[in-house]
């Protein structure tokens, strides 16, 4: 049972720290930093389900975040729905979209699948830029009145923060649960050798579609929450390919295939990224550094930091998953 795994308690502890540390000192700046780290961890750990567990590289993963943002924001502001309900419905809607779409493109293997996901991203961005109900290229804004149901803008920011931390914890726990389940073993078999997996009895078509859909759910919810908090959304920020790639860099850096790797990579990279983006000299260099990091990881340490840890201390595998 998952409660027996030490890592589960580590996740709960870390999440509690994320919540209480900024809350105690009412440190808004820290909260803003941590929320970005939390989103990075959400994106990286859900992406891990596709890349690390199943071996399918979803280059266009940010599409779930962006679409979730659009659907959820539309429901919460234009339609006036309760934020949490809007977020969950956005999650379900985007997962369904992923399921239908996945059934088509998951027949493609390896690199073709990766390219097709970039194509979906570009295509959806182009579509949304021309879609009237969602504001076309200008996007949508959240008026202050939309924050009233949550008790005003200040309170709303704290509430969305807690919700994002909850989604982060759920993402990590979901990764952990799948990793130790029969479903997860089937995914690993697909990753190692899809043809052999099918001959062993794994229904690869169904499994891939399910995990693709599942990997969309929590990022979509996070999308609703983040864009609601930020107050606006438009096609260029919702579907930025660079963010998608950065999620891959985070995962590779931390160690794909492991839950801790996604968390560590997300945390480290986001911290580095924030530093680079706020430093006046280095901001346009952030792409160069990200690219350089990715190259170094691919060439010298494809298992990332956690992979390196596992080689040094094989016993760590049991605790740090």
């Amino acid at each position: 049972m998952i409660l027996r795994r030490p890592f589960f308690w580590l996740v709960l502890l870390a999440s509690a720290l994320f919540v209480f540390i900024p809350l105690r000192s009412n440190n808004v700046l820290l909260r803003e930093d941590l929320i970005l780290v939390a989103v990075a961890i959400i994106l990286a750990s859900n992406l891990n389900l596709m890349i690390g567990y199943t071996g399918y590289v979803n280059f266009g993963n940010i599409i779930f975040f962006g679409l979730g943002g659009y659907v959820g924001l539309y429901l919460a502001t234009v339609r006036g729905w309760n934020l949490m309900l809007a977020a969950v419905v956005a999650g379900v809607a985007v997962s369904l979209f992923a399921l239908l779409f996945g059934l088509a493109i998951l027949r493609l293997r390896g690199a073709y699948f990766a390219l097709a996901t970039i194509g979906v991203l570009e295509a959806v961005q182009a579509f949304v830029s021309n879609f009237n109900p969602w504001g076309r290229a200008t996007g949508m804004y959240v008026s202050f009145s939309a924050y009233q149901p949550l008790g005003g803008a200040m309170r709303a920011l704290w509430i969305t923060y807690y919700l994002i931390i909850a989604v982060m914890a759920l993402s990590l726990i979901l990764s952990l649960a799948i990793k130790n389940s029969k479903f997860g073993l089937g995914l690993f078999a697909i990753r190692e050798d899809e043809d052999a997996a099918v001959v062993l009895g794994v229904n690869a078509t169904v499994y891939k579609a399910i995990i693709y859909s599942v990997s969309a759910f929590l990022p979509a919810i996070a999308g609703t929450l983040m864009f609601y908090k930020n107050g606006m959304i438009d096609p260029s920020i919702a579907f930025e390919l660079t963010l998608s790639i950065e999620a891959i860099v985070m995962l590779m850096l931390g160690g794909q295939g492991t839950v801790m790797g996604a968390a560590l990579g997300g945390g480290l990279y986001e911290t580095l990224r924030s530093y680079l983006l706020t430093s006046p000299k280095l901001s346009s260099f952030h792409l160069v550094i990200a690219g350089g990091l990715l190259l170094l990881v691919v060439l010298f340490a494809p298992g990332g930091l956690i992979g390196w840890l596992y080689r040094l201390a094989p016993r760590a595998r049991k605790v740090i998953e």
Binding site: L185, G186, F188, A189, E192, D193, D195, G201, V202
Partner: peptide, 28 residues
């Protein structure tokens, strides 16, 4: 066609999980 990055036990467990009996993880 070995499942290279899995242990021998995991390899064979896949067979047991998805074979004729479709066992759960522990039994497999």
């Amino acid at each position: 066609k070995p499942l290279n990055d899995l242990t021998l036990l995991d390899n064979v467990t896949v067979g047991a999980c998805f074979g004729r009996e479709y066992l759960d993880l522990k039994a497999a």
